[in-house]
Design a protein around this nucleic acid. Structure first.
Lengths: 234, 234, 234, 234
DNA sequence: GATGAATGAGAGTTCATTCAT
DNA sequence: CATGAATGAACTCTCATTCAT
């Protein structure tokens, strides 16, 4: 076999592999959509195959069972969410800004695909087996943790900030808000994020040196004004 | 027909009705448990009937379809949650205390039956129909809204408090925390509630007249101390 | 409830049970036929149900899986074969006569349903599990053993007769003959049985007192004649 | 084209053909084993291909369908059995010895591969078609017939010996014994063969000239002794 | 009203066979 | 010739729902 042929063969192998990956992707996308639309049990394998433009049996070449497919769908979703989140934040910015970026990205993603959250909990439990934590989700919440820890290290946040409790507030609020918005068929509302971030201000260390000097001063003044008012009632 | 007979007939009718209600209750309880254990699709009507100690066909005398049964289960759950919540709070107490009572009750209930939340979202959607808001849940969140509004009216809370946004924070955080605790098989953690309520302090109007005077003073002093520290860095 | 009603209810219960047994019987018969016609794997549950005039799901009320049904078919076949065999033989007759009766019955049964033998070996092995002896067949071969043992006890057969080896000859020959006859689509041939029983004559004790005196004498004379011929060649 | 090239081409063609035959052989062997292990329907073409170290599609280059492969397997088995049987017997020996040789060979082969018998009957019937006699088996039983006919021609056996009925006894007994031994997981038992051949003694012509003179005399004496005993009971 | 046997549409999955490479 | 990914018909089994008793 001469180099020419080898190259040709190699290119064909690449084409082949690309075709396989494209098919796998198509199946995954079709499954994600249909799971979202009809729920896991409501989605029929035949319909997934049809949407992915493959035969029914082909799906089983890539995923041994429906449950395997479900796990792949969930895995892919959270993996892509993690990738997207890391791209959405600007590490050089303040914690506040990064959290706003993350919150915006998260809320927008959930509104687009909020059913995946229900599906995720379906994937955690299959046939009465005990629930278990999914590693992809652990990876995803780490995006939040990283922002917070960088904030503590840079002195932007108080060292005593209870990260993992705030994390529940952060994700819990966004999920709940997303669900509310979707159910009411309302557009994304940044007010939710503003409000959420305001709550976190108390953990912020006010500093003249940070880039948000004006904000810090304003916060101090607001706090003083509030105290004045309250003391006035004494 | 003499009075004696009528009374007898009436008593029998009452007994009869009670039997019917007892049966309906048994079916509902059995369904709630099994839906929680196996999921809605995983739960078989035959098993529900068996646990309720009735025949399979009997279930259909009370609920026309499995979906009807599901709706009844969800309805009952949130109705009882509402009743329980109203009993759990003490309207004469401060907002803070009431929220703590509600949060504790809510978290405990979710940990016991957190799967009902997933089931609820399953009930919202049946056969690709669009999601819709369930009236029982509207009723339940009103418990929170009422506490907040009473707080505003009593001057305990600032009038500008964005109730419905805080509501998302409140329920969202508790739901998320409950899920985390259940998945990790951990016991209930009051720290979650402490942290959550701390976040809401900023909406609190400090007053010498309320029953939590000491707390108010302490809050003011803490705030001042914090400001001092930060000003010291200038 | 008065006796009249109880009787009525009891009779209804009996009717009900009879209907159930009739259905079970119908399914078993349909399965036996179709297994015979198409083989175990070739037979579709839908077709069995159709022939038994029940719905597909009904079959599964009586037999949990296709394998269960197969076992029931095999069990029934050998059970009925045993019953029929015991009825076919006349214990008061000579061993020779009883064996002839049994052989005739066996050969006739096998020709009618000889495929059940193949099916039986299919039932012995399911999904690569090791073969095992079926108790019903053990019971069936006991019919032969009993005849032989009674023959030994009555002095009709020599005590040293190797029963279990002859048993293999007896059943093996009949099975093989049945298969040959069926494959060639030939009618039952009693010559097979005559020849088989002749082979067993050597185990017979000749007695003046038994009912087959003439036969005994003839056997002796035949043996002597044969010896004469052979000695004549010396 | 010069001779050199032709030779080379021819040698390559031979190598090529050998490769093809080796492949065909490998497929056949793999199929035989798997059919034996899992049954015809239980054996998957993919597994056969895997064991034969060829691709799935390759099998279909040699055998158009699974049924074709089955027929080839059965054909090969009986052909090789016939070859082996003819090699196992010593035509110059007495009928008795030759039958012992054949019986031993047959029993041993069946114990090794007794499932092929079931498979054979599966091959006879495909999709409800009527059974038919396989020519390879006809060829195989001819080994027995030949021994017997040579025995008659040499005067060793009585001319009236009903060969085809004895044949059923011979093969039927051995098959049945083999199955019994395999099911009970017992080793080969020569007693089965001894007993079987004893039965055939009655067809033997006693001769002073054959190599088994002592045995003949003994047989006559035994027969006389037996007659004496029986006559003594008169 | 209560029962539970019966129903049958429909699900997930398998695998002999095909065919583009 | 050889490959193995792709096919899709056909299978067994499930279970919400019905209905005769």
């Amino acid at each position: 076999m001469n180099p020419q042929q080898r190259t040709s063969a190699k290119r064909m192998a690449d084409t082949q592999r690309q075709r396989l990956e494209a098919r796998e992707e198509a199946i995954l996308i079709a499954a994600t959509r249909l799971f979202g639309e009809s729920g896991v049990d409501g989605a029929r394998m035949a319909e997934i195959a049809k949407r992915a433009a493959v035969a029914e049996g082909t799906v089983y070449l890539y995923y041994k069972t429906k449950h395997d497919l479900l796990e792949a769908v969930v895995d892919r979703f959270w993996r892509e969410l993690t990738t997207g989140a890391r791209q959405a934040i600007t590490p050089s910015e303040t914690v506040s800004t990064q959290l706003r970026e993350l919150a915006t990205y998260h809320l927008r993603s959930l509104i687009d695909d909020f059913k995946i959250v229900d599906i995720t909990s379906r994937a955690r439990q299959w046939h009465s087996k005990p629930s278990r934590e999914l590693p992809q989700i652990r990876e995803y919440v780490r995006v939040f943790d990283d922002i917070m820890q960088r904030g503590i290290q840079s002195g932007e946040l108080e060292a005593s900030t209870p990260i993992w409790q705030i994390r529940d507030v952060f994700y819990g609020t966004l999920e709940h808000s997303a669900r509310t918005l979707v159910i009411r068929n309302q557009p994304i509302d940044m007010g939710v994020i503003d409000n959420l971030l305001d709550l976190f201000d108390q953990y912020r260390v006010v500093s003249l040196n940070d880039t948000d000097e004006q904000g810090s001063k304003r916060a101090v003044l607001q706090a003083l004004e509030k105290i004045e008012q309250q003391v006035a009632r004494w």
